[in-house]
C-alpha cells in the first residue's frame, strides 16, 4: 500500500470515526442503568428489558405505538397512491408529465419545516382539528413522491409491448395491470414502501406541526419535548440503538437487492 492510498484510507476512517462516535456512545451507555450519560454504573440489560416488559413510562410506550401505526398506515397508503400514480404519469404526454414531475419534486426540495407549516396552515384554513388523521395525511404527502421516484425507473425499464400484448390476448386493462405491470414493477414498489416507512418513522418537523394539541406524540416529538425538559429518558438509549441497528440492516438488504437487480440486468 503506497503512501497516497494510506492517506486516503486514513481520511475515510477518521471521518467515519467522527461520524459514529456519538452514536457509539449512546449504544455503549444503553448497557448501563445510569441516568446521566458518561457515568458508567456497571453493565446491565435493565434498560432493554424495561423496554419490553412495560417498565418504562406510559407516554414513551404510546409514542412508540403511534410512530409505528402512523408509519404503517402512511407508507401503505403512499405505496398504493404512488405506484398507481407512477403508471399514470409514465403514460402521460410529455408536457403534462413534466408538470406533474415538477409538482412531485416540490415536497422533495422543500425543507421539512416548510412542508410542515404549509400543511399546518391548510388544516387551520379548512378548520380540521389536528391529530392522528392530519399527521398521517402529512406523512403521505412527503412519502408518496419517493414511491413515485422508486417505481418510475422500473416502468422505464419495462418492455412497453407486453401490456399491449396482454390486451390483444384478451385481458381486461385491470387484469393486464395485475398480471403484467405489477409483477414487473414490484421491486420498485417494495423499495418505495421501505423508503416511506423509514422516512415516516424518522420524521420530526412535519409531525410536530401537524399533530395538534390533543396530546398526540410520535417518538421524535416525544424526544424533542423530553430533551427540552432537560434530561433524556434513559430508555431512549436502547431504543435508539435498536432503531439504528434495524435501519442498518434494512439498508443493507435494500442495497443488496438493488445490486442483485443491477447484476440481473447486465446478464
Amino acid at each position: 500500500m503506497n503512501g497516497k492510498k494510506l492517506l486516503a484510507k486514513g481520511y475515510l476512517w477518521l471521518l467515519l470515526a467522527i461520524l459514529y462516535t456519538p452514536i457509539l456512545i449512546i449504544a455503549i451507555f444503553s448497557f448501563t442503568e445510569t441516568k446521566v450519560l458518561g457515568n458508567w454504573t456497571g453493565f446491565s440489560l435493565k434498560l432493554y428489558t424495561s423496554l419490553f416488559d412495560g417498565g418504562m413510562s406510559h407516554s414513551l410506550l404510546s409514542a412508540i405505538e403511534n410512530t409505528i401505526i402512523i408509519a404503517l398506515v402512511a407508507s401503505t397508503a403512499s405505496t398504493a397512491l404512488g405506484s398507481i400514480a407512477a403508471i399514470g404519469i409514465y403514460n402521460l404526454k410529455a408536457k403534462p408529465r413534466q408538470a406533474v414531475n415538477f409538482l412531485n419534486n416540490l415536497p422533495l426540495i422543500n425543507p421539512d419545516i416548510i412542508t410542515g407549516i404549509s400543511l399546518f396552515l391548510l388544516f387551520v384554513w379548512l378548520g380540521i382539528s389536528q391529530g392522528y388523521t392530519t399527521v398521517i395525511l402529512a406523512h403521505i404527502t412527503f412519502c408518496t413522491p419517493y414511491v413515485v421516484l422508486s417505481v418510475m425507473p422500473r416502468l422505464k425499464g419495462m418492455n412497453p409491448n407486453i401490456y399491449e400484448a396482454a390486451l390483444d390476448l384478451g385481458a381486461t386493462p385491470f387484469q393486464a395491470l395485475r398480471k403484467v405491470i405489477i409483477p414487473e414493477i414490484k421491486p420498485g414498489i417494495i423499495s418505495g414502501f421501505i423508503l416511506s416507512f423509514t422516512l415516516s418513522i424518522d420524521d420530526f418537523a412535519v409531525s410536530l406541526f401537524t399533530k395538534g394539541n390533543i396530546g398526540l406524540e410520535t417518538l421524535s416529538t416525544y424526544i424533542y419535548s423530553d430533551a427540552r425538559k432537560g434530561g433524556l429518558t434513559p430508555e431512549l438509549r436502547p431504543l435508539s440503538t435498536i432503531i439504528f441497528v434495524s435501519v442498518l440492516v434494512l439498508l443493507i438488504i435494500i442495497n443488496k437487492r438493488s445490486e442483485r437487480q443491477a447484476q440481473q440486468k447486465k446478464v
Binding site: L81, G82, I84, A85, I87, G88, I89, Y90, N91, L92, K93, V100, L103, N104, L106, P107, I114, I117, S118, L119, L121, L122, W125, L137, A138, I140, T141, T144, V148, P173
Partner: peptide, 24 residues
C-alpha cells in the same frame, strides 16, 4: 386508460402540496 391513473395523485398534489404553499 393508463394516463387517467395519474389523476388521483394530481388531485392529491394540488390539495396537499400546491394549495398549502399558496396558503403560506
Amino acid at each position: 386508460r393508463r394516463s387517467t391513473w395519474a389523476s388521483p395523485y394530481i388531485l392529491f398534489l394540488l390539495l396537499f402540496v400546491v394549495l398549502p404553499l399558496i396558503l403560506i
